[in-house]
Structures are given as structure tokens and as C-alpha cells.
């Protein structure tokens, strides 16, 4: 569970790192990813892995199209406009999903379902293993991408100063579309991995709210931070459910979020600077 938070948080962080926008529709992209995969597996009888790849591709393309058609227009406007815009988009996605796939609850069969491994007396089901492995691989790939490739560095440059990056010959618009595609793809991966554990319905996107806690805890703008934050939130929830009275499990993440914001707003791995006037 913590890894899923981490993955969704990763999506937030990617977009924030590259475009300084906060995407409140991330959770809804996750939901779309899960639904698209479900549709291919159940309705069209595509194999799980093919459906997985298709879901990632479709949602990533969708993310890029979204950037090109809608979000590019608000670049340069106050950040608040973007927050509202993505909230609106999220509502549209949910309405779209409920119209296309209905508001029932679905389950997604996977190759890992109902299999488990025993490691030294502890039984671990393969679904959870798939989530953890997927997260680790994805995180490593993305980290390498941002640190070592020209495109990744260009993205970071574009985030810090769009105009300067543009003068340096970086195609800023294409960078932004690309980062939206990557982020939407990550959301789709998270959605598909989450689908067997939690069930698919149109409110799957609300997991995005908890992922916020993870992203903030790790420090917005830090890729390893988002994963550590996600896992921490997952563990805190688990322990709150086990040791605290009923009801604390659901709010534990938010309490932690508030505490972090009040005490150390930059999170565990974040950096802050002062604005020059």
C-alpha cells in the first residue's frame, strides 16, 4: 500500500519538478489507467501484460494530449489557476468513467492473483510483490532518467526557468508534454498494480489525496523522497489501524501531513530557497 502511495506521489513530484504545476487529477489518471486495463482484459480478452502496456500507452498519450490541448494555455498564470483546472479535469474524468464503465465495482484478475510465497514463515502474496518490484524498477529508471540523460536534465532546466531554458534551445513545450505523458504513465502503472489489491471503482482516484501526504512528507520535488514518504505513510496507516482507536486509520495520513507542513514544510528531502525581489 505504501508503495502505491509512493507511486502516485511520484507522479505528483514528476510534474511538479518539471513544470511546477500541482496536478490534483493524478488520482483520477490512476483510476483511468486501472479502468483501461480492466476494459482490455475483460471486454476484449487481451492478455494481462499486453493490456498493461496498452493501458500505460493510452493513458500516457492522453496525458500528453491533455497538456497540449488544455494545460499549455495556463502556463504563466498563477499556480492557483492550475490547481482549479486540474480539480475540474479530475471531476470530468470521474464523470467520464462513470458513464463509460458504470459505477459498479470490478476486480481485475492477474497472473499474480491468489499465489503466495513463503519466506521464512511469512506469507507474502504475489500481488504485493508485484507492487513492490514494479515500484523499485520504476523509481530507479526515473531517477536515472532525470540525472543522466540529456532530456531529463533539460526537463529540470525547463522547470527552473522556462524562458531561460527556451533561450538555451530546449523545446520547453515538448518537454512539458513529455513529462505529462511520463507522469500519466506512472499513474497508469500505479493504477494497474493497485487494481488487484483494491477493487476498481470510480472513486479509486481519492487515493490521490493520501498520496499528497506522501509527496509532502518526502518533500515535493524529490523523487526518492516521494517513495520514502509513500512507504512511511503506508506504515503509519498500518500501525494507526492496529494500535489506535477505530477511525484513526483513515485520518492518520492527513494528521501526519498537517504536522509535517507545520513543522518542516520542505519535507524530509526537500530544499527551500528565498525569493529574490
Amino acid at each position: 500500500m505504501g508503495c502505491i502511495y509512493g507511486l502516485v506521489a511520484l507522479g505528483f513530484v514528476l510534474i511538479y519538478k518539471a513544470t511546477e504545476l500541482v496536478n490534483f487529477a493524478q488520482g483520477d489518471l490512476l483510476m483511468l489507467g486501472a479502468f483501461v486495463c480492466y476494459m482490455f482484459v475483460i471486454w476484449y480478452g487481451v492478455g494481462y501484460w499486453a493490456a498493461f502496456a496498452l493501458a500505460i500507452a493510452i493513458v500516457a498519450l492522453f496525458g500528453a494530449a491533455l497538456d497540449a490541448s488544455v494545460l499549455r494555455r495556463v502556463i504563466g498564470q498563477p499556480q492557483f489557476a492550475v490547481v482549479m483546472l486540474t480539480i475540474g479535469l479530475g471531476a470530468i474524468f470521474r464523470a467520464f468513467a462513470s458513464m463509460t464503465w458504470g459505477s459498479e465495482i470490478y476486480t481485475l484478475p492477474t497472473p499474480f492473483s491468489a499465489k503466495a510465497t513463503r519466506v521464512g514463515g511469512v506469507t507474502i502474496s504475489h500481488e504485493y510483490v508485484s507492487i513492490i518490484v514494479g515500484t523499485v524498477i520504476l523509481c530507479a529508471v526515473l531517477y536515472a532518467f532525470f540525472t543522466y540523460t540529456r532530456v531529463g536534465v533539460a526537463m529540470q532546466a525547463a522547470s527552473q526557468n522556462q524562458l531561460a531554458a527556451y533561450y538555451m534551445g530546449i523545446p520547453v513545450k515538448r518537454m512539458f508534454s513529455l513529462i505529462w505523458a511520463i507522469s500519466a504513465g506512472v499513474a497508469a502503472i500505479a493504477g494497474v498494480l493497485l487494481a488487484p489489491v483494491s477493487l476498481i471503482d470510480i472513486n479509486l482516484g481519492f487515493i490521490g489525496l493520501k498520496a499528497f501526504a506522501a509527496a509532502v512528507l518526502g518533500g515535493f520535488g524529490s523523487i526518492p523522497g516521494s517513495l520514502v514518504g509513500g512507504i512511511t505513510i503506508g506504515l503509519i496507516e498500518l500501525f494507526a489501524g492496529a494500535y489506535l482507536p477505530h477511525g484513526f486509520k483513515d485520518v492518520a495520513a492527513y494528521v501526519v501531513l498537517l504536522a509535517v507542513l507545520a513543522i518542516r514544510p520542505q519535507g524530509m528531502f526537500g530544499t527551500v530557497g528565498r525569493k529574490k525581489v
Binding site: 494555455r73 495556463v74 475540474g88 471531476a91 470521474r94 468513467a97 470510480i202
Partner: peptide, 16 residues
């Protein structure tokens, strides 16, 4: 699900 969708659509159109 139509109503929240319409709210969202209006929000997006206004911001844009």
C-alpha cells in the same frame, strides 16, 4: 455522474 462532470467542465472552461 453527470452533474459533477458538468461542474468540472464549467470550471475548466472558466479558467481557460
Amino acid at each position: 455522474g453527470l452533474e459533477p462532470g458538468i461542474f468540472g467542465l464549467i470550471l475548466v472552461l472558466f479558467i481557460l
